[in-house]
């Protein structure tokens, strides 16, 4: 049974790393770890709503960390998820001025993870602040950009999902959409600056 779980876990990690079948991987994470993570938040002065937010952010951060090859499997997925959730919850309770609850949370410290986890949390905070820029893009643009940059599909693969005549027209549209998006980012210089810092891309 333990071996089966381990194999399943490795399989899930591998799929996340390659960005394949993410929905199935997330279903696995929810089924296996939701209650465990929810308990952690509830036992540390959180509500069910807090737990929902923390868990969604945890899964998101864990997917990113795995995809960025920062998770090397030094610990089980469970204790890694716990570390991420703990850090996210700490950031939240700090914001809620509830540091008094901190002491109860440090059950299992994994200092080797802390830097990567905190880096990802900061990155996501900065991305979240600027994410509403995407809402101002049209649905066609959002769809093309999502398929090209997130799903990593080629223009040839994207073409059947659109009404464009050929790949070249689609390429032009994609470039136009990306240009619009970067221009919109330009309109938020302060947020962009903090995002640069968080992303460490300069």
């Amino acid at each position: 049974m333990a071996l089966f779980t381990l194999n399943k876990e490795n399989d899930v990690i591998e799929k996340i790393r390659k960005n394949i079948d993410i929905n199935t991987c997330l279903k696995y994470l929810y089924k296996e770890f939701y209650s465990f993570l929810e308990r952690m938040v509830l036992n540390n002065s959180g509500t069910r709503e807090d737990a929902e937010d923390v868990i969604q952010e945890t899964f998101l951060a864990v997917l990113q960390i795995i995809q960025n090859d920062k998770f090397k499997g030094e610990s089980s997925l469970k204790s890694f998820l716990y570390s991420v959730a703990k850090n996210i919850w700490l950031v939240k309770i700090k914001k809620q001025n509830a540091e008094r609850n901190r002491a109860n949370i440090w059950i299992e410290d994994k200092p080797e993870f802390e830097a990567d986890i905190n880096e990802q949390i900061k990155k996501n905070e900065a991305l979240e602040l600027i994410s509403n820029v995407l809402d101002s893009l049209g649905s066609v643009c959002k769809n093309i950009l999502n398929k090209y940059y997130y799903e990593n599909l080629s223009l040839k693969e994207i073409l059947p999902f659109t009404d464009f005549e050929n790949e070249q027209v689609l390429r032009n549209k994609k470039s136009k959409c990306m240009k619009t998006l970067t221009e919109k980012l330009e309109q938020h210089p302060k947020m962009k600056e903090s995002l640069y810092k968080a992303l460490k891309i300069f």
């Binding site: 994470l29 929810y30 997917l63 990113q64 994410s131 950009l145 990306m178 998006l181 970067t182 640069y196």
Partner: peptide, 25 residues
């Protein structure tokens, strides 16, 4: 700027996946 936009698109894509899985759950 381009890199930031790409990061944002990747973040948004994953976030939507998590939201979808969360509402299914």
């Amino acid at each position: 700027n381009y890199q930031t936009a790409v990061e944002l698109l990747k973040y948004n894509g994953l976030k939507n996946e998590v939201k979808k899985a969360h509402s299914q759950f």
